[in-house]
């Protein structure tokens, strides 16, 4: 970097010197080639391959933090590596981990819990977020303040949110229990007990994720040109027709992407389930990341945990690609603006 800056300075001054010489445009043209050659430098080399220099740090980071771990996880998934077993005693065991996944009831349970958790939390946070985005898109006084209030659950760290909710869910000292007592319910439900834990976890996730939907969908709604609505009004369209034929088709691409991002996020989410329930009681809230983590870092079976992670990734990739393919088809069909 030092070198680059220095070269930059050198180049600057040399160009300035040239300009000081009389009328370069009419007189002898500046010998740019010679100039470059005379100081074959890092600077000119960088300039010629600038794009690769610019993306190099990103690529390097991705190679170390994403690509290498991905490949290594795939390799680990074919081994019997344990946390406590040194690398050189680890053996290649073929597809053993994969076949034992198929017969492992814990894995199937984790899949089921994850799918319920993801689909319900994404579905409801989308519906709430879209509804509120529509309302906040109306020219209401004070909507800027209201919008910043809705950002708060997004900003609050997930681990703090999980701590606070578990405190509110507390069946002795919690505020929910207290409020229910006010309504004459003296035996409040055990929110984090076996029956309700998944429900409570999903509620927390909805609370944490609906602000993201509001912000993204509101941005999408505000990008819809106002004259479309005016034109529709001139043609005599009523409110629900404008919604049906303008708002919905134009918000659809944004909505599909925000749902995809939210679903990937929820499916991979670790912090809130871990702090709120650690997957319990029993395995009632053991979503896939929690189950995988428990196997790998609590049970110490890296090989099996790696296999779980690979299966998770392949599932996300498959579902994500089908979804994206559908998205691109729809967007092409409607001719709507791509984001």
């Amino acid at each position: 970097m030092e070198q680059l800056l220095k070269n930059n300075v050198v180049e600057k001054t040399s160009v300035n010197n040239k300009i000081e010489s009389p009328t370069p445009l009419q007189g002898r043209p500046i010998d740019l080639k010679g100039l470059e050659k005379s100081r074959f430098s890092l600077s000119s080399f960088v300039e010629r391959h600038i794009a690769y220099f610019l993306i190099a740090p990103t690529m390097l980071g991705i190679a170390v933090v994403n690509v290498y771990p991905l490949l290594d996880t795939v390799r680990l998934s074919f081994t019997n590596r344990l946390l406590s077993r040194p690398e050189d005693e680890t053996r290649f065991i073929g597809l053993e981990n994969y076949t034992s996944i198929l017969t492992n009831p814990g894995v199937w349970n984790a899949f089921k819990v994850s799918l319920i958790f993801t689909s319900v939390s994404v579905g409801l946070s989308f519906i709430i977020g879209f509804g509120l985005a529509l309302l906040l898109n109306r020219p209401l006084p004070g909507r800027a303040i209201l919008r910043s209030i809705f950002i708060i659950p997004w900003a609050v760290p997930a681990f703090v949110a999980a701590l606070t909710w578990s405190w509110m869910f507390n069946d002795q000292f919690g505020i929910f229990a207290s409020l229910l007592k006010d309504f004459g319910i003296n035996r409040p439900p055990i929110w984090l007990g076996a029956d309700l834990a998944l429900f409570s976890l999903t509620v927390v996730m909805i609370w944490k994720s609906f602000p993201f939907q509001i912000i993204v969908l509101l941005a999408g709604l505000q990008a819809i040109p106002g004259d479309l609505y005016e034109a529709a009004e001139v043609d005599g369209a009523i409110a629900h027709q404008k919604f049906r034929y303008i708002t919905l088709p134009l918000i659809k691409p944004v909505a599909m992407i925000s749902v995809l991002l939210a679903a990937i996020n929820a499916f991979n989410f670790f912090t809130i389930p871990w702090i709120l329930t650690r997957g319990g009681p029993g395995e009632t809230t053991a979503v896939l990341p929690i189950y995988t983590y428990t196997i790998g870092f609590v049970g110490g079976d890296f090989g099996f945990a790696a296999t779980m992670a690979v299966i998770m990734f392949m599932f996300i990739l498959l579902a994500g690609s089908v979804y994206l393919w559908q998205y691109l088809r729809e967007v092409d069909a409607t001719g709507a603006q791509r984001i």
Partner: peptide, 8 residues
Amino acid sequence: PGILLIIP
């Protein structure tokens, strides 16, 4: 998934 990266 974060959990995929974390072990390696």
